[in-house]
């Protein structure tokens, strides 16, 4: 700490800058007025812009004042201070090594006890980590593989209205849920985008011959990329676009991913039209919906 003596007593000469003193005084006065304005604004009910403006004056006045004071009215030097290398003197380092080794020797001699201690702490950590993690949430189990869609699920809108095959015009689009699961939290997983791409039966892919009655195609609305709702339907090109990362899915070929980062098509929900004219699902999805995870394959 001896280095600080270098400039002690230096720079005590008086700095005279009347103009600066005036500027600083004005700054502080601006601050006071700003604070008063702020108080009045609060008193009468507050208004964001006026509050922001007065806060700016109140804080800025103090800030400019203090900085100017520190910059123009007190000595600036420059002063010089020595610095030392961080490492300590060799004799101190040696003494540290000696102390460290002495302690280590006293403890490390009892190897068996040391191992036992390590074991005890390790077991404690491991075992207690488990309930801590386990209390946080359930294990996923099969929940990422299933939705609430099953054979005969009625398609309903978010407010529970049953969707009839006559409801959508060609070029229409709608978000639907299995009846009874239109509320939270299941609607996050079960959401399906229903598109009417034609007025005749559509086959998106071999093996899906009956899935698109009267031109109705239904796909999981959860993007296979990062899980956003694929709510953006471009009617002329008959493509679904994900608003988050712009993955593009081609509806007529079974929502195949044609552009952007999405690695898989949106799973298609097989539909049929009941005798009552209500749209229903033939079965649940034939693959897990949404983004990928370790436990699923292709």
């Amino acid at each position: 700490m001896s280095d600080t003596q270098l400039f002690e007593g230096a720079g005590d000469e008086e700095i005279r800058r009347p103009l600066m003193e005036k500027v600083i005084a004005i700054s502080f006065i601006i601050s006071v007025l700003g604070t008063v304005g702020l108080g009045v604004t609060y008193w009468v009910g507050g208004q964001p812009q006026v509050e922001g403006g007065f806060l700016f004056l109140a804080l800025g006045g103090i800030g400019v004042g203090i900085v100017s004071w520190g910059k123009y009215l007190v000595p600036q030097g420059p002063y010089v201070q020595e610095r030392h290398e961080m490492r300590s003197a060799p004799e101190d380092v040696d003494a540290m090594h000696a102390s460290l080794s002495r302690g280590l020797g006293q403890v490390g001699r009892r190897k068996f006890l040391l191992r036992l201690l390590g074991g005890a702490v390790g077991v404690f950590g491991l075992i207690n980590l488990f309930p801590f993690l386990r209390s946080l949430g359930p294990v996923p189990g099969k929940s990422l593989f299933v939705t609430n869609w099953k054979h005969g699920s009625e398609l309903v809108t978010a407010d529970g209205r049953t969707v009839l095959a006559s409801d959508l015009e060609v070029g229409g689009v709608m978000t639907v849920f299995p009846k009874g699961f239109e509320g939270e939290p299941s609607n996050a997983i079960d959401q399906v985008i229903l598109v009417r791409a034609a007025d005749y039966d559509l086959v998106t892919r071999p093996g899906r011959e009956t899935w698109g009655p009267e031109g109705y195609l239904a796909f999981s609305k959860v993007c296979t990329h990062a899980g956003c709702p694929v709510g953006l339907y471009q009617e002329l090109t008959q493509q679904l676009l994900c608003p988050c990362h712009q993955s593009l899915f081609d509806v007529l070929t079974g929502a195949t991913n044609v552009f952007g980062p999405a690695p898989r098509p949106l799973p298609q929900l097989p539909l049929y039209v009941g005798t009552d004219g209500v749209l229903r699902s033939q079965a649940g999805f034939d693959e897990p919906i949404g983004p990928g995870f370790w436990e699923r394959g292709a």
Partner: peptide, 13 residues
């Protein structure tokens, strides 16, 4: 009417 690329939202929707 669903002009251009915009889907059409008819009375059923």
């Amino acid at each position: 009417t669903g002009p251009g690329d915009m889907p059409r939202f008819g009375p059923g929707t």
